[in-house]
């Protein structure tokens, strides 16, 4: 039983990060209808900045907040200057620009911080060997508890933003019908920029927590997390915030259980295979995901 709880808890903790990144994808998707393929690299780049600020002597929590702010500005700028102008032309153009960003940020990080840069990253939470609590026979590390709490708090804030504020209502209106949103006086450009900014800021936080668990920042930091997040967004239905969160947590738990109970076959190496199977399965069986509207256009 204690094994079960261990896998469950570890799964929830990694799932919290998948959820956060999936939320980023969903926020951008709802606003613009695009999948931001550069989301992971944007997070990674911000994480490097957080690390650098911390390296210069700024307390990590302050560095993380600064990183989020920089991320917000960066994301909003990218949307206004790079994405929106080509979005008029085609979705493929947006995809190519996102790929350009992906490659650009990835190689820029490598160029600035050395290749392969292996910078040690401290954790936002207590992370000494004995920083854990035993519950149900499983060890609940403070680090993992912290990630879970941050994940839930951010999700809660995001829900409040979308459902309780004027700006959130405007964001939902743009997602629902962009033309009508303009007609009721919503500055859609600002909403789209804010969506990207918000996604980038949350991504920066997620990246900082990922680097805290692995203890290092590398350009490939977010590759696999981005795959997990896309799996979560796919499973959740791409336009559903709640769906993304539940799907992210589910995927975290499922892959941890799978890796834990089948260490020989799946183990740490093939956890990613679980995510791939989920994406393939969902897209084949129910392309709108579990919670989505009929938005993912079908052939």
């Amino acid at each position: 039983m204690s094994r079960f709880f261990q896998y469950l808890f570890d799964g929830l903790s990694s799932g919290a990060i998948y959820s956060l990144l999936a939320l980023c994808l969903v926020v951008v998707y709802r606003g613009t209808g695009y999948l931001n393929f550069a989301q992971g690299e944007m997070s990674m780049f911000c994480t490097f900045l957080v690390w650098k600020l911390n390296d210069w002597g700024m307390p990590l929590w302050l560095a993380a907040i600064s990183g989020m702010l920089i991320g917000y500005l960066g994301g909003a700028t990218v949307e206004t200057t790079l994405i929106r102008p080509v979005a008029k032309r085609s979705q493929f153009a947006v995809f190519v620009v996102a790929i350009g960003l992906f490659l650009g940020l990835n190689s820029l990080a490598g160029a600035i911080w050395g290749a392969p840069p292996q910078e040690t990253m401290p954790s936002l939470f207590p992370n000494e060997p004995d920083d854990f609590q035993r519950i149900f026979g499983a060890s609940w590390r403070y680090q993992s508890i912290g990630i879970l709490i941050v994940g839930l708090v951010v999700t809660g804030l995001l829900f409040a933003l979308f459902n309780k504020t004027r700006f959130g209502l405007a964001m939902r209106a743009v997602a629902s019908n962009a033309d009508s949103a303009r007609l009721v006086g919503v500055n859609t450009g600002r909403v789209l920029a804010a969506s990207w900014g918000l996604a980038a800021a949350i991504g920066a936080l997620a990246g900082t927590m990922v680097a805290g668990t692995t203890g290092e920042v590398v350009p490939g930091l977010m590759f696999s997390y981005f795959v997990y997040a896309s799996a979560a967004a796919t499973l959740g239905g791409f336009d559903s915030l709640g769906g993304a969160v539940i799907a992210g947590l589910t995927i975290g738990v499922v892959e941890n259980m799978a890796a834990g109970y089948a260490p020989k076959w799946i183990g740490q190496e093939m956890r990613l295979g679980v995510a791939l199977l989920i994406i393939l399965g969902v897209l084949l069986i129910k392309p709108t995901g579990l919670f989505g509207e009929q938005k993912v256009s079908r052939v």
């Binding site: 004027r166 209502l169 405007a170 939902r172 209106a173 997602a175 629902s176 019908n177 033309d179 009508s180 949103a181 007609l183 009721v184 006086g185 919503v186 509207e293």
Partner: peptide, 19 residues
């Protein structure tokens, strides 16, 4: 019509007052 199908009736009215 151009209503916001995913929003509730009341939310549609509220967004109408956005300006």
């Amino acid at each position: 019509r151009g209503t916001f199908p995913e929003l509730t009736v009341e939310e549609n009215l509220r967004i109408g007052a956005h300006s």
